[in-house]
Write a protein that binds this DNA or RNA. Sequence first.
DNA 1: CGGCTCGGCCAAATCGTTTCGACCACATCT
DNA 2: AGATGTGGTCGAAACGATTTGGCCGAGCCG
Lengths: 360, 360
Amino acid sequence: MPRSASDRPTLALVAQRAGVSVSTASLAFSGAGPITSETRDRVLAAATELGYHGPNPLGRQLRSGRCGIVGVVLGDNPGRAFRDPVSIRVLDGLMEVLGEHRLGVLLIPGNQPQSIAPLDPLVASAAMDVAVLIWGALPDDPNLAALGRRGVPVVLCGEQTLPGVPVVRIDDRAGAAEAVRHLTELGHTRIAEITLPLDVWGAHSGVVTAARIAEATVMVTVARLAGFRDVIEPVITWEASASFVEHGREAALSILGEWVPASQRPTAIFAQTDQLAAGAVIAARELGLRVPEDVSIVGFDGLDLPWLSPDVLTSVHQPLRAKGVAMGQAVVGLLAGEEPQVVTLPTQLIEGTTTTKAEG
Amino acid sequence: MPRSASDRPTLALVAQRAGVSVSTASLAFSGAGPITSETRDRVLAAATELGYHGPNPLGRQLRSGRCGIVGVVLGDNPGRAFRDPVSIRVLDGLMEVLGEHRLGVLLIPGNQPQSIAPLDPLVASAAMDVAVLIWGALPDDPNLAALGRRGVPVVLCGEQTLPGVPVVRIDDRAGAAEAVRHLTELGHTRIAEITLPLDVWGAHSGVVTAARIAEATVMVTVARLAGFRDVIEPVITWEASASFVEHGREAALSILGEWVPASQRPTAIFAQTDQLAAGAVIAARELGLRVPEDVSIVGFDGLDLPWLSPDVLTSVHQPLRAKGVAMGQAVVGLLAGEEPQVVTLPTQLIEGTTTTKAEG
DNA sequence: CGGCTCGGCCAAATCGTTTCGACCACATCT
DNA sequence: AGATGTGGTCGAAACGATTTGGCCGAGCCG
């Protein structure tokens, strides 16, 4: 057994030992092309004798021009992307499909807006057959530009569409509208909003004005903001700096705090993600408010949140795993030379225990 | 700009256009070796004209014998590995170090015990310079065996040590003992235990006997079980089928249920992970028990659990991110030809709000 | 019995880059 | 002036596999 990678036997060595040509030995492993089982056995025997365990992927890759690797660009630093159950679920579905097609997932930290280095070196020069921008792309995304220059095909996720690029999306605007309409149909009129960051920096946090909302650049946020306003105008909008429970809690503590007269207190909150909504539920509990009697709360994503027990969040469910699966299929289609498509997946509001009729 | 990968210009083309040899053109890009700035500029100009954006990584890889990729083998299916905040944090630290050294992370679904296919094809044949078994290895791990045959160096995480293989670990046994000792020092004597799965299948769930405990095969579990028993014998041991909140909740509902006479009810629980412990806190709340007055709960890992608010879990903190960092450094060291080491990181019990003195 | 087909094997070209050694011109030292 | 560098460039040989086209012999059909 070879100690290090340097003294690994090559196919040529195996062929020599088996008394056949290199091409025949290759055939014995790949299985393509006609070969006597006797010959194959001789090659395989020679291989085991020499400790040769299959062809070196590097050589194969160079020849075939493919490396079997799909780069997955995380939209933010990995610490955040991974803490977000949403991307986790998507990644899960994606890996399933890619695994079936013997494609590997290369994790690529996305561009970090505050960083000086605009581009991860992996984006610029790692070997990959396709890249997936799992968190959506900005209109002038540097990753997208770099991958385009390199000639790496891309699959996108989210609102942004580009000619010749497959996109997997949901109707964020309609989903948000459905959530808010659910609340208005229950009789709520004073509805607060907890929104995702309006820009990629995520530096701001707190109540925001209409002016700032009009300048929002993150496409997902923009769509969900618009969906809310398709139904009714929020009484207050609170911008979170990221989609974590603690931010939702902080927002709701402020929105529902005791300094707000009960008569003016929002009777419902729509949070743009389940994490934020869950934070709001926790905040309401801490403030001694009953959910949903005193305040109804709706989220977006449809995560399974066992730790919110005994509450079950009312939420706009999106098929996260299916999203990943669809992206995987888009990757496979791209490699097969199919025409890129825009796939829109359905969302569905599912009632939990955190919404009920407005009092009075 | 080239439309597809097939008609991408090569270094030879660029060299020809610039009127220099291929080797000189290579020098112009790599920067290694002497070259006139004038010549380099000519090459670079020719490259931009042709839309050549740096050397093809595949060719470079074949030549250098390295592909700049580290395979990260997830111990279970990715859906689970990613749901577990523990591996996420470790992965985060790992990616940071590897990123600094321009190494990419290739995600590899681990062996799925219930599956017929014993080995992921990526383990068997993906190109990688090193593999990291992030969830530790079994004594007879098929991944480990396959990687060994292929000559891929390995970095391990956890209790299992192997000659010539770098390992990053914590002292699980001592950590568990510290947690339980904390409870006994507070006067607790009836202490229940919620344990991680005893075997890799994770099919069993419920109260377990001493006989089954003696047959535990997962090293981490074994170590934490032993740590408990270094201090005191648990009054009851409940095996969870995975490290999720809902399993901890289920366990605690059973352990603390109203059918248990208050005089015999455990006054404290040590759960082998924070997720399980958090589930226990939630269960206690649902049962109307006060934490910590009626029941003290200790976890293991030291996760930040904002959704457990207002409680803060008492827990044995392990440096998760540092674990990833150490594994990254082990990878880099391995590639640099350094001697493999076993690194043991410290753990520390940090008191939250979920433990207090036993009553009476 | 001759021509044709076809299965099984091989030689050689190819993928795109890096790197080693050779080479040349020019400057420097003795 | 001749010997000794030396900076800049080039040719050619790896790196390890796949794949195309060709060759040879055996079987089949007419």
